[in-house]
Design a protein around this nucleic acid. Structure first.
Length: 893
DNA sequence: GGATTCACG
DNA sequence: ACGTACGTGAATCCA
């Protein structure tokens, strides 16, 4: 030990990890490993490091084996629950991370972490050094002294409380040594230390205030009156033993020298790599490690990520010439644009990585004469372009009249297939997950939301170049991962071609008659006004019906209707609640109708009107191929997958969706019961298969089997209930969910389910098997090998696990249905082109395809579309699609 | 920006 | 005992 000022920080590893595990919400990385305890530990560590600035540092762990305490008392820590696997799997991760922090770790067979820490604080005391102990365990307070401070975590892990001997005295009226006596008397159920029965903290403190120590209490136990005195006298041995067990052993034979604990900080590159592995993105940003890589340091400029390329800002003839020459060697393309909606986003720039150079082209110069070769390359169907979100790039470029045709590999799409639930689609996040040196996040360069700004040319060039280089670095590893996961065909035969087809549909758009919407909007408006005044009259005053808060006050406080359900913030007023309240007051029905009409007005009349492009009178939605966890598409700006149909009032909206050419028709075809047919196929259930082979009404068939009656005795109510059971089966059934849906008791619902499983034993087996398989593999698959990871399937938390189990049952069904209609779209696109048809595919709504069709092709398409859909993927049961047509989408029913 | 509600499959 | 049906997107209110 030198005489310079030293401060040693001693962390009780096990205690903090436990605290962190139970304090933090569940958290897993993309491979399903739990990381919440490590994350919580790290947050605490960073905070304490910052506040304490130690010169020496140690994390102590309990050794796995029995400690010396067990020798005298077998039940020591006997009452403890076994460590959950979600926690034990985190210890190796934590130890590895601590190594990346360059922090020493000790554990020693036969001793616990607090013994090691106790020994080191004794040494610190003796040698006049300062020590700070961090733990979640109050026992540690016995170590406090003039030189030793104890920090105890409180609610959560990152908040700590400081205990000096003075603080302990003022809080408990005890010296640090008396903390041992305190526990000797009151015991500790978590460590299975008995103490004296009937003695809790209050009594123990009273006894210690009077007698000072356990020994002195026992000496005077004869004079203590009542039940308390009896208990002490009959359990005096327990008290002595408890005190022994609670005493931290401070003579552990440690081999390590003081100097080995010296800590001079971490290597940013090493720590960044460790964080990336754990996917602690927020910590990387918090410590500003995003530039730190294994190869380089955290320095600025090119050293930051050891760029192996030169950025070329394409501005003059020389650069254009170089770029044009490099196009045939191009390895990656990035198109940067404003905003999320590619149909209205302005381009910012392009970056093309080719060999040792990355060329960055400001978007405006894409239209210059020099850019002719670049435009040709973009439009070249054989260019074999690798990029990031080429679907969006195609739409952005299309707005400028530039084609993007040679798409061959998209790292965003590939990453989605590898893990469709990963929320962060950014290149920076993707690099981190793949363990590659990362680049700045777009938000760091551009800002986000209203603060979005294109930086100066130099910064823009650097960032776009980094992105193109990132695409290039990611392409091969992602392609290899796809291969390994058996998703090569899924990618190249289905998703990649589909991306181009979707862009085509979006560019085509669908004609929507503004006048028709406006006309309908007027009807809705007069309805809304009529209902509003009725509601105000019944309430006795005007209020904002659209405010759930005000509405709740009117219904439940003013009118005194019964409260059915509450939300986090107050009364629930959703439709389910209102339907139950209908009999109580006529205002309820009006409110429901008001809700329906205002929804239609704001979302569908006003919302859609805003999206009609004046240039062509069409709506161009944006299908997202990388959002839904099951493999479905999603639709945005606007969403054309949720246009009303169930209620006649709203269904009228569909009359505004018309063909874009006079005399043409809308043709719509939808799969009949695709999910239950998929279930019949993958479960192999004979009864279900037979039902579909015989073209039976599946809900009637279900009713027959569940209620045990012949077809002619199935009434509409039985069929309705059977239909709900079928929905439940597809969603991953639970008695609770079904009972909610059918408004029956859970018991009745459970009986239905049991009946169903008896009638369709193959389905029961599928449900059992798929859950077991998900538990085994950590993921489930669709027929086309699409994957979804379910990290919570092994959770000890019932809710999380149940959710994952239902997802395991549902995803192969919903996902396979999504696979099939996507295949049908690829086939339909081929058919239209091969047959030279003018008909156009416009929309996909999960199980439905919508086309516009010239009159001379109507008969052809009425056969071709359902046939192509039915043949898209052969199952053990027939697939069936129904087709309809009309002058608008409403009529095509 | 989160919570609530509701449109669709 | 636990307490939710599966998957989306958009509008509105309100802190």
């Amino acid at each position: 030990m030198g005489d310079d000022k030293q401060k040693v920080l001693l962390i009780d590893g096990n205690s903090i990890v436990y605290r962190a595990f139970y304090a933090m919400p569940p958290l897993t990385n993309s491979s399903g490993l739990h990381t919440n305890a490590v994350f919580g530990f790290t947050t605490m560590l960073l905070k304490v490091l910052e506040e304490e600035k130690p010169t020496h540092l140690l994390v102590a762990f309990d050794a796995g084996k029995a400690t010396f305490r067990h020798e005298g008392y077998e039940d020591y820590k006997g009452g403890r629950e076994k460590t959950p696997p979600e926690l034990s799997e985190q210890f190796p991760l934590l130890k590895e991370l601590l190594a990346s922090f360059s922090i020493q770790q000790f554990e020693l067979g036969g001793y616990e972490a607090d013994d090691i820490i106790g020994t080191l604080t004794r040494l610190a005391d003796e040698q006049g050094q300062t020590a700070v102990v961090v733990s979640g365990d109050k026992d540690m307070l016995q170590l406090a002294s003039d030189r030793v401070t104890v920090l105890l975590t409180r609610k959560g892990v990152s908040e700590v409380e400081r205990y000096t001997p003075e603080e302990i005295a003022s809080r408990y009226g005890l010296t640090p040594q008396q903390i041992i006596d305190l526990k000797g008397l009151m015991g500790d159920s978590s460590d299975n230390i008995p103490g004296v029965p009937g003695v809790g903290e209050k009594t123990a403190l009273k006894l210690l205030a009077e007698y000072g120590t356990v020994e002195n209490v026992l000496e005077h136990m004869g004079e203590i009156k009542g039940k308390l005195g009896e208990n002490i006298r009959s359990h005096h041995e327990d008290a002595r033993m408890s005190k022994r067990l609670a005493t931290i052993f401070r003579e552990v034979p440690l081999q390590q020298t003081w100097d080995e604990l010296r800590w001079t900080g971490y290597d940013p590159a090493e720590l960044a790599a460790a964080f990336r592995k754990l996917e602690f993105k927020s910590l990387i940003e918090r410590l500003d490690l995003s530039g730190a890589t294994q190869a380089g340091g955290g320095a600025e400029g090119e050293a930051a990520h050891q760029a192996s390329y030169e950025t070329v800002w394409v501005a003059g003839p020389a650069e254009w010439e170089a770029l044009n020459g490099a196009l045939k060697r191009a390895e990656a393309l990035v198109v940067e644009s404003h905003g999320e909606n590619p149909h209205q986003s302005e381009g910012i720039g392009l970056a093309i990585a080719a060999g040792e150079r990355v060329y960055v082209v400001p978007y405006a110069s894409l239209f210059s004469n020099e850019a002719a070769a670049l435009r040709d390359w973009l439009a070249d169907a054989d260019a074999a372009i690798t990029g990031y979100d080429l679907h969006k790039a195609e739409l952005v470029l299309a707005r400028s009249g530039i084609e993007l045709r040679g798409q061959s590999f998209d790292v965003q799409l590939a990453a989605y297939l590898l893990d469709p639930t990963e929320a962060d689609p950014s290149l920076a996040g993707l690099l981190q997950r793949m363990g590659l040196p990362s680049i700045p996040f777009d938000e760091a360069v551009f800002g986000k939301g209203a603060k979005f700004r294109v930086p100066d040319d130099e910064a823009l060039a650097a960032h776009l170049a980094a992105k193109a280089d990132a695409v290039r670095r990611l392409a091969r590893p992602l392609a290899e991962e796809l291969d390994k996961a058996g998703m090569r065909t899924l990618y190249y035969e289905l998703e990649q071609p589909l991306a181009v087809i979707l862009a085509g549909m979006e560019k085509q758009g669908i004609s929507v008659r503004a006048e028709a919407l406006e006309e309908l909007g007027k009807e809705f408006q007069s309805g809304i006004e009529r209902i509003m005044s009725e509601i105000y009259r019944l309430a006795g005053f005007e209020f904002n019906i659209g405010s759930p808060k005000q509405l709740g006050e009117v219904l439940f406080d003013k009118l005194g209707l019964p409260v059915i359900k509450k939300t986090k913030t107050g009364y629930s007023t959703d439709a389910e609640v209102l339907e139950k309240l209908e009999p109580y007051h006529e205002i309820v029905r009006l409110i429901l109708h008001y809700r329906t009409l205002t929804k239609l007005q704001s979302t569908y009349i006003e919302g859609l009107l805003k999206e009609i492009r004046p240039e062509d009178g069409k709506i161009h939605t944006y299908y997202r191929q990388t959002i839904a966890a099951t493999g479905r598409l999603s639709s945005q700006f606007p969403n054309l997958q949720n246009i009303p149909i169930r209620l006649e009032e709203g269904r009228q909206i569909r009359k505004a969706f018309v063909p874009s050419e006079p005399g043409w028709h809308i043709v719509a075809a939808d799969y009949s019961q695709i999910e239950l047919r998929v279930l019949a196929h993958i479960s192999g259930d004979e009864g279900l298969k037979e039902a579909f082979r015989n073209e039976m009404d599946v809900h009637t068939k279900t009713a027959m089997d569940v209620f045990g009656v012949p077809a002619d005795q199935v009434d509409s109510n039985m069929r309705r209930q059977a239909k709900a059971v079928n929905f439940g089966i597809v969603y991953g059934i639970s008695d609770y969910g079904l009972s909610q849906n059918l408004n029956i008791t859970r018991k009745e619902a459970a009986a239905f389910i049991e009946q169903y499983f008896n009638a369709f034993p193959g389905v029961r087996k599928y449900m059992d098997d798929i859950v077991a398989q998900a538990k085994q593999d950590g993921y489930v698959k669709t027929l086309l090998e699409r994957r979804r990871y379910l990290p919570d399937i092994r959770a000890s938390n019932f809710n999380l696990r149940s959710f994952a189990e239902r997802t395991a049952m549902n995803t192969p069904i919903q996902g396979t249905a999504a696979d099939i209609i996507k295949l049908a779209m690829v086939r339909m696109d081929e058919e239209l082109r091969e047959r030279g048809l003018k008909s156009r595919m416009l929309l996909q709504v999960h199980d439905e395809l919508v086309f516009e069709v010239p009159p001379e092709e109507l008969e052809t398409m009425k056969k071709l579309v359902p046939e192509t859909m039915a043949r898209a993927f052969p199952l053990d049961v027939p697939l069936k699609a129904d087709v309809n047509f009309g002058v608008n989408w409403y009529e095509a029913k």
